[in-house]
Simulated assay, not measured.
Amino acid sequence: METFIKKLCSRYKVSEADVQSLLDCMEEVHFKKRELIVREGTKNSNLYFIRNGIWRAYYHKDGEETTIWFASDGEAAFSVWGYVDNAYSLVNIQAMCDSVAYCISRAALNQLFSSSIGLANLGLRLMDHQFLQQENWLINPGSPRAKERYLNLIKETPELLQYVPLKHIASYLWITPQSLSRIRAEIVANNVVMTD
């Protein structure tokens, strides 16, 4: 639990006291591998902090799933549509492995935001983080940046390779699974050459 709190404090620049105040008002929830936390076309205004696990958000287009983000230990996850506007979600959020998270409704969170400047600032940082994540995803699609994005992704969250099928990572990178296989083979070949 201590490591989880430190990750939250570091990632969102919030004090341990504010994180503890927030966690005191949240409910611990458990999800099984492949379970949908948010289903496309439903309303879910909850905010989740992932204690253990990896989640992904994706949408369907032309019968294919396109992954738009991954979240792991110490990160916030939510449907922007439900959280911001109590609207129907345009994405699914799925647990990629058995997961434990903390959950709070938007209404309860608003009450906390009005009681603490530190927590109100956390709310702003959550949105900032979400905007940056989405813009990075939109601006950097496909090759030739795919290799760089893949390397950054596995550097930041190496456990993705353990829990997330490569087809989902490929869709996040806006490339085909075959292109991702070529990138991975090139990385392995270059590492072998560099270590000889």
Rank of each mutant, 00 (worst) to 15 (best):
M1A: 10
E2L: 10
T3G: 09
F4M: 01
L8W: 06
C9E: 13
C9L: 07
C9N: 13
S10G: 13
R11A: 07
Y12C: 02
K13Q: 15
V14N: 02
V14G: 00
S15Y: 06
E16I: 13
D18M: 02
D18W: 00
D18A: 10
L22Y: 05
E27H: 02
H30D: 09
K32S: 15
K32D: 10
K33S: 13
E35M: 08
V38K: 01
V38M: 03
R39Y: 09
E40R: 01
T42H: 05
T42K: 03
S45A: 06
N46D: 09
I50K: 00
R51E: 14
R51C: 07
R51N: 13
R51Q: 13
I54S: 01
W55M: 12
W55A: 05
Y59F: 15
K61N: 12
K61W: 11
D62L: 07
D62M: 04
E64T: 11
E64S: 14
E64F: 09
E65N: 14
T66G: 04
I68N: 15
W69A: 06
G74Y: 02
G74L: 00
A76H: 03
A77E: 11
A77V: 14
V80A: 05
V80Q: 08
W81D: 12
G82K: 05
Y88G: 07
N92M: 04
N92Q: 02
I93N: 07
I93Q: 04
A95M: 03
D98L: 01
Y102N: 05
C103F: 12
S105D: 12
A107K: 15
L109R: 00
L109V: 00
Q111N: 11
L112D: 00
L112E: 02
I117P: 12
G118M: 01
A120M: 11
L122G: 04
L124F: 09
L124T: 12
L126R: 01
M127E: 09
M127Y: 08
F131H: 15
F131A: 07
N136F: 12
N140I: 04
G142N: 13
P144I: 04
R145G: 07
R145F: 06
E148M: 08
E148R: 10
R149I: 00
R149G: 03
R149Y: 00
Y150Q: 04
L153V: 09
L153R: 06
I154A: 03
I154F: 02
T157C: 11
P158R: 00
P158A: 04
L160Y: 00
L161G: 11
Q162V: 03
V164E: 09
P165Q: 01
H168I: 03
I169L: 01
T176S: 08
P177L: 04
S179Q: 14
L180P: 14
S181M: 05
R182I: 13
R182S: 10
V193W: 15
V193Q: 14
M194I: 09
